[in-house]
C-alpha cells in the first residue's frame, strides 16, 4: 500500500489539456465514469431524495431480499441497504477527500520547505517522516483514531497523518532538483523572496506529480477507512460506512448474502474507479508512459 509514484521532474507545462487527454485515455474515461456515477449516488443520498433513510430502522421488514422497493434488500434492523451503501459512499468519499487534502497540503509544504531550504528544516522534516514511515501504517491510524472522540473528521485526520510522509517524499526529491534548474536560480538571483520563488516557480512544476499522487491516495484512503471501520475504529455508528457494513454482514452472509455483496461490490467499484482515474492521469502526465499504452 505504499506504492510511491516516482515521476521525473517535468519542467515546462506537460500535457496542455490534461482533461481532454484523460478523457481520451481508456482507463481515465472508465475511471471518470465509474467514480462519477458513484458520486452522483452519494450526492443523491446526501440531498435526501432517496426513498429510504440510511439509519431508519424497520424491524418488520428486516433481512428482506432485494426487490423493487428495496433494491439491495434490507439488513438485520430492516434498514435499506441501498440507502446505506449510498450514504457509505458519501462518507468514504468525504473522509478520503478531507484526508488527502490535508495530507497533500501538509506533505507538500513539508517537501517544499525541506527540499528548498535544506539544513535544519530539512533534517527535522526528514526525521519526522522517517519516524512516521517506520510506524506500521494501519496501527498508526488505529491508535490515532482511538485518541480522540471519534467522528468522521478525526478518522480523516488519522488517515491523513499516515499519508503526510508519502507526500513529503514525493515532493522533496523534485524540489531538490528544481532548485538547481536555471530559471529557478535566475528568479532567486533577481532578488525575489525565497517563499515567492517557491510558490511561483517551484510549486507549479510539481502539479503533475501531485495530481497523480492525489488520485492514487484517494483510493488508498477509501481502503484505509474501510479497513479501520472493519476493525471498529472507523466512522462511528449509526452512520453507515462500507467497512463496518461488511463487518456486520459477516455473520449474515449465509442467510442474507446481499448484506455483504452490496457494500463489498461498491467499495471495490469505488476503489477501481479511483485507481483507473489515477492510471489515466499518470498516462497523461507522465511522459515515460506515453506511447506504451
Amino acid at each position: 500500500m505504499s506504492e510511491l509514484t516516482e515521476l521525473p521532474v517535468t519542467v515546462a507545462g506537460t500535457a496542455r489539456r490534461p482533461l481532454t487527454a484523460v478523457l481520451r485515455s481508456r482507463s481515465g474515461l472508465a475511471g471518470i465514469i465509474l467514480t462519477g456515477l458513484l458520486l452522483v449516488v452519494a450526492i443523491l443520498s446526501l440531498t435526501g431524495v432517496l426513498p429510504y433513510d440510511a439509519t431508519a430502522q424497520d424491524p418488520v421488514h428486516r433481512l428482506a431480499a432485494p426487490s423493487a422497493s428495496h433494491w439491495f434488500g434490507t439488513d438485520q434492523f430492516g434498514r435499506d441497504v441501498f440507502a446505506r451503501v449510498a450514504a457509505g459512499v458519501a462518507n468514504s468519499s468525504l473522509i478520503a477527500v478531507v484526508a488527502v487534502t490535508f495530507a497533500t497540503t501538509v506533505g507538500t509544504a513539508g517537501g517544499l520547505i525541506g527540499g528548498f531550504f535544506r539544513r535544519l528544516p530539512d533534517a527535522l522534516i526528514s526525521g519526522l517522516t522517517n519516524i512516521l514511515f517506520a510506524f506500521p501504517p494501519l496501527l498508526l491510524a488505529l491508535s490515532l483514531a482511538s485518541v480522540f472522540t471519534r467522528t468522521w473528521f478525526t478518522v480523516a485526520v488519522a488517515i491523513a497523518v499516515v499519508y503526510v510522509p508519502i507526500f513529503v517524499r514525493v515532493t522533496r526529491g523534485p524540489v531538490l532538483s528544481l532548485r538547481e534548474v536555471e530559471f529557478v536560480r535566475a528568479a532567486t538571483s533577481t532578488g525575489e523572496s525565497r517563499i515567492a520563488v517557491m510558490l511561483r516557480h517551484v510549486l507549479p512544476n510539481l502539479t503533475s506529480i501531485l495530481v497523480v499522487q492525489i488520485a492514487l491516495s484517494l483510493s488508498w484512503a477509501v481502503l484505509t477507512e474501510a479497513s479501520l471501520s472493519f476493525l471498529g475504529l472507523g466512522t462511528p455508528p449509526p452512520a453507515p460506512s462500507l467497512g463496518s457494513m461488511i463487518f456486520e454482514s459477516r455473520t449474515l452472509v449465509s442467510i442474507a448474502p446481499w448484506t455483504m455483496a452490496a457494500p463489498g461490490v461498491v467499495v471495490v467499484l469505488l476503489v477501481v474507479g479511483l485507481n483507473l482515474l489515477g492510471d489515466g492521469l499518470r498516462d497523461v502526465l507522465d511522459p515515460r508512459n506515453r506511447g506504451t499504452r
Binding site: S227, F230, I246, M260, G264, V267, V268, V271
Partner: peptide, 13 residues
Amino acid sequence: LAGLSIPAFLLAT
C-alpha cells in the same frame, strides 16, 4: 487492478 482494489479484509472474510 483487482489486486489493488479488493480490500484484504473482504477477500479474507
